[in-house]
Measured scan of single mutants.
Amino acid sequence: EPLWIRPDAPSRCTWQLGRPASESPHHHTAPAKSPKILPDILKKIGDTPMVRINKIGKKFGLKCELLAKCEFFNAGGSVKDRISLRMIEDAERDGTLKPGDTIIEPTSGNTGIGLALAAAVRGYRCIIVMPEKMSSEKVDVLRALGAEIVRTPTNARFDSPESHVGVAWRLKNEIPNSHILDQYRNASNPLAHYDTTADEILQQCDGKLDMLVASVGTGGTITGIARKLKEKCPGCRIIGVDPEGSILAEPEELNQTEQTTYEVEGIGYDFIPTVLDRTVVDKWFKSNDEEAFTFARMLIAQEGLLCGGSAGSTVAVAVKAAQELQEGQRCVVILPDSVRNYMTKFLSDRWMLQKGFLKEEDLTEKKPWWWHLRVQELGLSAPLTVLPTITCGHTIEILREKGFDQAPVVDEAGVILGMVTLGNMLSSLLAGKVQPSDQVGKVIYKQFKQIRLTDTLGRLSHILEMDHFALVVHEQIQYHSTGKSSQRQMVFGVVTAIDLLNFVAAQERDQK
């Protein structure tokens, strides 16, 4: 057995438009009618409502009807409940999964919650491996369901041993009777949507819809739904939504950006999952974080739909894509998950301010006199920076000697690579993860907040409520011999709460 199987392995699926269902090699399930009293909570997966979006479509000038398939009504709160249950049931049916076995899954959280929910009911041990950027709410729900959680670096490539995929496979090879159901490759993922989600949409719309818009992560949702719609409703256009920084969209030119990270969760990847059939997507749109969270908040405030950030991405694209539809036509959007997962993220004004998705003037509360002053007023001194090749031991000596707790790590040209902190280095040394002679590049981390000289002290204040420091950066445009230009970030300084307090105190003292 291989040590790991690539999540982007070539698909062996034989589905073709027009091929009889009787030739399918898979076990198919028909939607079942729910009894009045459910035998367990797993029976509350599927049969989610279709809700008309009344205000947002009109606000953006849509002539067509805009409908939302509300997947956050599933038992675990997301569309991923469907595939989690289906993968477990299919693994039980073919004898792969037996009582007492362990389920391991690399996930952005929602599939993990679905699997942990099913594992709690069915009696399996469950280990979820997820990147650090995923919300604390997801972690809390997983723990409450009895799952064990392993976190991995957000910026690790999918084929790196440190990625959530790599760590999951390492655990599988170490733990007896453990299984990775593997949402990236498992046919049960798109089949769950082909058999149930798509049929529900067709039934709820009486077979009449002209466009379907869905955000894409593993691709199982859009693949399964689109294949069924292509068979039953061939005139329906399928629109895929991919965040900026991901590479799922086609044509490839759409993916060209210097951005590699994004805040919206559960969609987009740096590889093409095996289950994603991009041939059934008629057109791709890219979405960005700001519009995703703005539209998610709009869905909550104006439509009462308590959905997550990827739902915002989907609707932001839908109001663009559906401009081509006329009166009497219908566009369906998939709202994948609930706001429950993001209470401390985009639902929080403070978080939105820190990330730059909300401006101070958007909030009406009274601010102190210094709130709208610029960061450049602080008069920061030149920063202490270190090269990635310097040793951890030497870096600790320098920081202690100069009285700093942290320093930016830059390359020879001064471009920011990340940050090192005294606390992080000492804990890594004590844990045996690094040696004093190791290069400081081994303990770089990139989960820090950046701020510009033109940003306000109010925004800085919000950042420092949650973080010990902020890195002050400025952009530099560099022209190359080819005539092309590129933008790079340079370090201007490091600012802490002490710097802000000293500035405010000094100004008030001078005024007296």
Rank of each mutant, 00 (worst) to 15 (best):
S427I: 14
G418V: 01
D455I: 15
L501Y: 15
T364A: 05
A413I: 11
N288C: 12
M298C: 11
Q439A: 11
T261W: 12
S348C: 04
A431H: 04
G312P: 01
K433C: 15
Q450P: 04
S287H: 07
M466C: 13
L399T: 06
V473I: 04
Q329G: 14
T344H: 05
T314Q: 12
Q376W: 09
L305T: 00
L380E: 09
G403N: 05
V339M: 08
K320M: 12
M425E: 05
Y479W: 03
R400C: 14
L429C: 11
R350G: 12
V275G: 02
D510E: 13
K446H: 13
D405N: 06
Q323E: 11
S486N: 12
E397D: 14
P243C: 02
G266D: 01
V495K: 04
V281N: 04
V491D: 02
D242W: 00
M343F: 06
G393E: 14
W351K: 01
E465H: 06
V434M: 14
A407C: 14
S310E: 05
V375T: 07
H474S: 10
V264Y: 01
I463Y: 14
V317D: 08
Q435I: 15
E412H: 12
K359R: 14
M298F: 07
D242L: 02
G356Y: 04
G432P: 06
D362K: 14
S481M: 12
V280P: 09
I390C: 11
R297K: 07
V434L: 14
I272F: 05
S313I: 03
Q354C: 04
V275S: 01
H474V: 12
D277C: 03
E377F: 09
A318R: 02
H474I: 07
Q406D: 02
K512G: 11
H372V: 15
P336Q: 09
Q329V: 05
R400M: 08
L501E: 02
E244Y: 10
V339Y: 06
T385H: 07
V333I: 13
T260L: 04
Q256P: 07
I238G: 06
K367G: 15
A382V: 15
I451K: 10
E263Y: 12
G414D: 13
I334L: 08
I390R: 03
D337N: 02
H462I: 13
T421D: 07
I398F: 15
E265S: 00
L430P: 13
I463W: 04
V420M: 13
T274W: 00
F293V: 01
D289I: 00
R340D: 05
D270Y: 02
L471W: 13
H468P: 15
N424A: 13
L347S: 02
S485A: 15
P388E: 08
P251K: 04
K512V: 13
M352P: 00
L501W: 03
H372S: 12
F285N: 08
V440M: 15
Q447K: 14
L373H: 11
F492S: 15
T260I: 15
A321F: 06
D242C: 01
Q329D: 07
T389E: 11
D337G: 00
R350Y: 11
V275L: 04
G240Y: 00
V443P: 10
K359I: 14
G356L: 05
D499H: 04
S427A: 11
T261H: 12
E263G: 05
R400L: 11
Q450K: 14
F448D: 03
K367N: 12
G432Q: 03
K366W: 09
F293A: 00
A506Q: 10
M352K: 06
S485T: 05
K366I: 13
G309M: 00
K355D: 02
L500C: 15
A249S: 03
E258N: 14
G403S: 14
S338P: 08
P243Q: 01
I267K: 02
Q435K: 15
L248Y: 02
Y445D: 09
L471A: 07
L384W: 07
L358S: 08
K402E: 13
G423F: 13
S485P: 15
H394Q: 11
H474Y: 15
L276V: 08
G483D: 15
L471T: 10
F285V: 12
V332P: 00
L306G: 00
E327G: 15
H394R: 08
E475V: 14
F285T: 06
V443F: 15
L325M: 09
S486C: 15
Q259A: 04
L363S: 10
A311L: 07
D242I: 00
T261R: 09
F293Q: 01
F295M: 14
Q354A: 06
E365W: 15
A322W: 00
A382I: 11
S486I: 14
V409L: 07
C331I: 07
L353C: 10
G483N: 04
P388K: 10
V375R: 07
Q323P: 05
